[in-house]
Design a protein around this nucleic acid. Structure first.
Lengths: 157, 157
DNA sequence: ACGTTGTTGCGAATGGTTCCTACTACCCCT
DNA sequence: AGGGGTAGTAGGAACCATTCGCAACAACGT
C-alpha cells in the first residue's frame, strides 16, 4: 500500500459538502457556506485567523471561534485537513489536496512535497517499527535551497 | 553527506557544559547547574514543565521562565535540542541523543527512530527540491503498530 | 408557521511560551 | 577577600492559538 490511502470521499464543491453535512445531521448555515467557499477558492495553507478575515469580509459578524468549530466539523467529515508548518498556527486546506509539507527553519517558507517522496520513509518506518506515517499532517522542518545557498556563502566568507 | 551532520561538539558532563557556558560569556548559576544535572540524568523527552518540577525538588524557587531561558541558551550553545511531538508541548533532550521521533496520533506514544530511516526521504527531497531536512526536530505523526492492529480489528467487526 | 436542536456570538479560560522589571549573585579585578 | 559590573533571576503580566460555556438564534422536518 502506497502512502496515499483512500479518501473517505472527495466532494467537488460547496454544495456537495453541505449536502454531506446535512446527511450527517448538521445544518447548512451561512457561515459554513462562506467558509467553504473560501476553502474551495485559490490558495492553500490558510490559518484559521486568515480564513476568519476572509469570511468576515463577507459576513463581518462571524466569530473566530465559529471558524474553529466549523473547521473541526469539516475535518471530522473528511472534507478539510490541517497541517502544522513549523512553530506557527495550524493551516487548513481541502482534504483533496494531498501533499506533504516542508518548512524552512530559516526563512519560514513552506514547500509542498509530492507524497511519493515520502514512500521511502514510509516503507523504512513500517518495516522497522510497524509504524504507519501520515505525511500530510506534519511539516518536515529543514532548510530550503535558497537558505542553504545563502548560509553556505556566509560560512565560506 | 548523510543525515547526521557534525555536532558543533559533544560535551560529556555538567561541568564541561558549564565551562562552555562561561567561555561564551555566561555564568554558572545554580539553576543552570541543576537543570543540566536533570538533562544528563535518565529519561529523554522531558517538557519544560517536567524539567521545572524536577529542578524544583532540589531548588523550589527556580521559576519556570528561568527553565525556558536556560533551555534556550543551552540550545544556542548546541548542548540541548527540542522536538515537537504532536500537538503537546515541546520536549527537550541533550543534543548528543540524535534520533527522529514518531508520534502516534491515536495513543500519543512517541517512538524514537534511528536517523538512518530518514535517509531515503532526505535523499528524495534533496534531489527533488534542494531541501535539506532536519529529521530530529519534528515528529512524524502517524499510527503505531498497536493502534493499527486495534483499529483494523474494529474495522473488521 | 412551529418547535426542536444544531449553531452562533461573545467572552472567558486554557496551555505553552515569551517578555518586562526590579532585585540578586556570579565572577573578574585588585 | 571584597566590591562592582553585568548576566541571570523570580515573579508576574502579556501573548498567541485554541477551546469552552452559555444564552440567543436560526435551519430544517413536520
Amino acid at each position: 500500500m502506497s502512502v496515499e490511502s483512500r479518501q473517505s470521499s472527495a466532494p467537488a464543491g460547496v454544495d456537495e459538502v453541505l449536502a454531506r453535512v446535512r446527511e450527517a445531521g448538521g445544518r447548512a448555515t451561512t457561515s459554513r457556506r462562506i467558509l467553504l467557499e473560501r476553502l474551495f477558492a485559490e490558495g492553500s495553507h490558510k490559518t484559521a485567523e486568515e480564513l476568519a478575515h476572509e469570511v468576515q469580509r463577507v459576513a463581518p459578524d462571524v466569530h473566530l471561534s465559529t471558524i474553529y468549530r466549523n473547521l473541526e466539523e469539516l475535518e471530522r467529515l473528511g472534507v478539510v485537513t490541517h497541517a502544522h508548518l513549523g512553530h506557527g498556527p495550524a493551516t487548513y486546506h481541502l482534504a483533496t489536496e494531498t501533499h506533504g509539507h516542508l518548512s524552512c527553519e530559516s526563512c519560514g517558507a513552506t514547500l509542498e512535497a509530492p507524497l511519493g517522496l515520502f514512500d521511502g520513509l514510509a516503507d523504512a518506518v513500517r518495516a522497522a517499527l510497524g509504524f504507519e506515517i501520515d505525511p500530510r499532517h506534519f511539516a518536515v522542518l529543514g532548510h530550503c535551497a535558497a537558505c542553504r545557498a545563502r548560509e553556505a556563502a556566509v560560512a565560506d566568507a
